[in-house]
Computed example of a mutant assay.
Amino acid sequence: MPAGSEGFAVAASTGPTMPGRPVVTGLERRYRRLLLAYPAAYRRRHGDELITTLLDAAGTDRVRPGRRDTVDLLRGGLRQRFRLPVGKAPVAVAVFAAFVFGALGAGTGSFLGWCTTPPLRVDQSAAQIAGLAIGEPYVGGFSRDDRWQLRAVKVEAVDPRYIAGWTSTSAAARFTAAGWTVEPTGPSAFTANRGTLRTWVTGPLPAAENPAGVVMWPDPSAAPVSVVIWPAEPAAVTAGVVTGWLAGAVAGWLLVAWVAYQLRGDRSWARRGTVAILAAVAVLVLFRPVLWTYLLIVTGAVLSPDRWGPPSPVYVGFIDSDAVAVPLFGLAAVAAACLTAARARPTPSHDPEDLVHS
């Protein structure tokens, strides 16, 4: 043993050692922490071998892992966690799971982003906005679309009235004079923006000349004035959707990789069949909310739906008030499949790629 190595081993140990037990140095403990980047099964099969190789290469004068060793271990651990069994089916399932859980993560990020803005309330300002729209004091009530999370997606005047001589041009001029930014969206509609509020105003169409005397029912020139108010989308929503989607996609891929390796080599066909059935049920149940979530993402990113009224937040794809139990049932099926897979007893892998760790 080289001179000075005894002193290093004693200094690096955490306390007294038992006779016959090897001294655990601080360097070894740090290496073992880095090995947590690898899956547990991989650590059981190759952890001691890796630690021995790393300690032999480190020498006796090193107390912390080098930068190169740290990067190699973390990179190798992530590669092992993201690896899938050989074949096209695991890759297809992992990609699908990434899209499903990505949608769920995007919805969660959208909801958390909306939580950064104060809830929309019906107060005196709502009545003032409605008064600007109709051109006289508004004394009616408002309806709230609260969904299940008690955060109003929109507030709408429930007592619209036909205002003789009303035009969108005059209404837009009143909003502009009050400090709103107005954007026309049709011959008798416009969107007004100010601060954290958006307002959509629609009213009767201008009376058109009708020399043929054709009677139109209902008469579009006698329509009431409609006022809808909703909060402006905070900047945190976009960041939440992107971050949530990435986190969900990664989680979905890792979940499929874990289940696939759990079931690989397991001799219980009943267990495998149960996992497959539960996964199919989850796919069927989650198909609608996943599709709806991606449609909301694309619509919000491409079409600017607030030109025609309040857009639906991305999170309503999964937690809509009319079907909040549906995604919960699908996620319950996923959880049941994972619990079933956790009981599998996979055979030890002899894949040569398992030996690659850097």
Score class of each variant (00 low, 15 high):
T167L: 00
L35C: 08
R33C: 01
E28W: 09
R33N: 04
P119M: 02
G165E: 09
R272D: 02
S5R: 13
G309M: 11
A58D: 03
I319E: 02
A173I: 04
G102C: 09
T274L: 13
L55K: 02
P206Q: 07
T25S: 11
W258P: 01
T108C: 11
V23D: 04
G179H: 11
L73Y: 07
V139R: 15
L284H: 12
A249N: 02
I229R: 02
A335N: 08
V281F: 14
L278F: 06
A11C: 10
M1H: 06
L205F: 02
R267G: 14
R288A: 09
L34Y: 14
M1P: 03
G213Y: 05
W245S: 14
L35T: 10
T52E: 15
V250F: 02
F318C: 03
F318R: 02
S168M: 12
A223T: 03
P313K: 14
R32A: 04
F287Q: 14
D69L: 07
L73Q: 07
R33G: 01
P305C: 10
L27Q: 07
R79Y: 00
T117M: 10
S188N: 13
L36R: 13
R271Q: 05
I134F: 03
R43W: 06
A236C: 00
G135R: 05
E49I: 05
A282N: 02
G248K: 12
S268N: 06
E183D: 07
A37H: 03
G265E: 00
V225H: 00
